[in-house]
Nucleic acid binder design. Structure first.
Length: 487
RNA sequence: GUCCCCAUCGUCUAGCUCGGUCCAGGACACCAGAUUUUCAUUCUGGGUACAGGGGUUCAAAUCCCCUUGGGGACGCCA
């Protein structure tokens, strides 16, 4: 039987970012796909930090990437690995390849190579390594080494068969000619491994059986397959997904305004919305509506439907799906992600979670993101209503004052505990009664009440307000609104 | 420059493997109506796509070729 992403193999996948900056959307999507495929197949999702570039790697980036993964709910199922702790292992492997005659030392300097590339470009040739040092005689090599000239180890590509064939689990049969690249470096002159070597050694040692990454790695895959062969090892399966592009179908870039994960978090995106959108961009999420948890997402994920081409990322679409999530997720799942709550002060902080969730549930349909809550909640927590110009206009009309006055009378006669909100079942009757007595209905009834209670034309459902505001608070708001009455 | 990948509504895509059931289906977005005694929510309806050109065939979104467009790779970066 042909192996597919869904043929039952528990996939051991990995997400292997280099900690050289904040996590970007493309990275995030790769991470999500790896996580999803592992989870869906009852496999394992691993994370590995590829920090072999000493100049560009930073601890801050590591922390940022790891926290972004955590935020998205993509928890690694094994301890995070770090390549910089395994330098000896890579070096040994490179040396072994040299001994076997599959690699050779290269003494070319940075300047030499740059010159070569320039010359090649001028001739319209691909900028590949000239293989100058492959021609060195053993004595020459020994001399140079004894003279202390620094060298790298290059893998002998030309010795490989014509093309490299592999079956990509997403793209199908793939043939990459070895002419696509020159003899590549596996060990740098400072003793650190190159990307391709480190990846192969680690994927082997970690028993990764499926590599999911962007199609920009297609030629790296060919190089890595060569390394697997040189090490007498079986390569894992590969699945290359398309890249994320912007509206103009250009690669997503910071310059073009693409946001990083920390920026998206700060912008008030709910993690489930982001994960759903990014996973859905490949067409692999079945059904409509939001997902309520990562497990839910796994249920609806079908890796066989992963698209083959590039995917267009639209801020607008993310915004839309984000709104939907803030509207529909239970308040319980919203609370941990709401930002700026501390500015609400004591009354909020002292409140039990259950009560907080009730308030959130009332305002969430008007929320647009993680920090749209504070202002909405603030209007519920205070007695001080801020009236908009529109509110003032509405409240100064006698007809509208009548409505408020009537409601005040009705509430004043109510014997319920003033420190509690009114019971749900009473609210309907109460509003109907107000309407009847004031001789209004529909918008004429609700609009003045909305303005009086919230000071603005937008806000939670009126009935909901009565359900969360203590009766005393409702009364004081109404009293205040009555001050707009014309003399 | 050389090589590789991709090409269906605005977006993500179904269909392409085994050509007819596709004057191309769905979702999101958009527009219009309806419901909810308010905004929101919800419901119903609507418009919009097979990149272009050649073949093959009784028949092509589906197979072949070319063109165009887009993306990627070619580092002592990953």
């Amino acid at each position: 039987m042909t192996t597919t992403l869904m043929s039952g193999t528990p996939w051991r996948t990995r997400f292997a970012p280099s900690p050289t900056g904040a996590m970007h959307l493309g990275n995030a999507r790769t991470a999500i796909l790896n996580w999803l495929i592992a989870r869906q197949s009852q496999g394992t999702f691993c994370v590995r930090l590829e920090d072999t570039d000493q100049e560009r790697s930073s601890f801050a980036s590591e922390a940022s990437i790891l926290s972004a993964l955590d935020w998205m709910g993509l928890t690694p199922q094994e301890p995070v690995r770090r390549q910089s702790t395994r330098l000896e292992r890579y070096k040994d492997t490179a040396l072994k390849l040299w001994e076997k005659g599959l690699a050779y030392p290269c003494f070319c300097t940075e300047a030499d190579l740059q010159q070569d590339r320039k010359t090649a470009a001028a001739k319209g040739m691909p900028p590949r390594y000239s293989r100058r040092c492959a021609a060195l005689q053993p004595e020459e090599v020994r001399e140079k080494i004894n003279a202390g000239i620094p060298f790298t180890l290059r893998f002998k590509v030309a010795d490989a068969p014509e093309g490299i064939h592999f079956r990509d689990l997403l793209k199908g049969d793939m043939d990459i000619p070895t002419q696509a690249f020159g003899d590549f470096v596996i060990l740098r002159s400072n003793g650190w491994p190159s990307y391709n070597l480190a990846v192969v050694v680690d994927d082997l040692d970690m028993h990764i059986n499926l590599v999911v990454r962007g199609e920009d790695h297609l030629t790296n895959t060919a190089r890595q397959i060569l390394l697997y062969r040189a090490l007498d090892a079986t390569p894992p399966y590969f699945a290359h997904h398309g890249l994320l592009v912007d509206q103009e179908h250009k690669k997503l870039s910071k310059r073009a305004g693409a946001k990083s994960l920390p920026q998206l978090m700060a912008a008030g995106i709910h993690p489930l919305a982001l994960v759903h959108y990014l996973a859905g961009l490949s067409g692999a999420i079945k059904g409509k509506g939001i997902v309520y948890s990562m497990d839910d997402l796994v249920q609806r994920f079908n890796p066989m439907r992963l698209g083959r081409g590039n995917a267009v990322f639209l801020d607008e679409d993310l915004e839309n799906i984000n709104h939907t999530y803030w509207h529909k997720l239970p308040a319980h799942d919203l609370l941990p992600h709401i930002q700026g709550l501390e500015s609400l002060g004591r009354p909020w902080q002292d409140m039990p979670d259950k009560h907080k969730e009730n308030l959130i549930a009332i305002v969430q349909q008007n929320a647009t993101g993680a920090h749209s809550f504070t202002s909405l909640l603030a209007t519920l927590l205070t007695d001080e209503v801020t009236y908009s110009l529109e509110a003032v206009r509405v409240l100064t009309r006698p007809k509208n004052q009548k409505v408020i006055q009537v409601l005040c009378q009705i509430l004043a006669a109510n014997t319920a505990d003033r420190n509690q909100p009114l019971p749900l079942q009473e609210i309907d009757a109460l509003l109907t009664q107000t309407g009847t007595m004031a001789g209004v209905k529909g918008k004429d009834l609700y609009f003045p009440l909305r303005m009086a209670l919230m000071g603005s034309s937008e806000g939670p459902e009126i009935k909901g307000l009565f359900h969360v505001l203590p009766l005393s608070n409702v009364l004081s708001r109404l009293e205040k609104a009555r001050e707009f009455a014309p003399d």
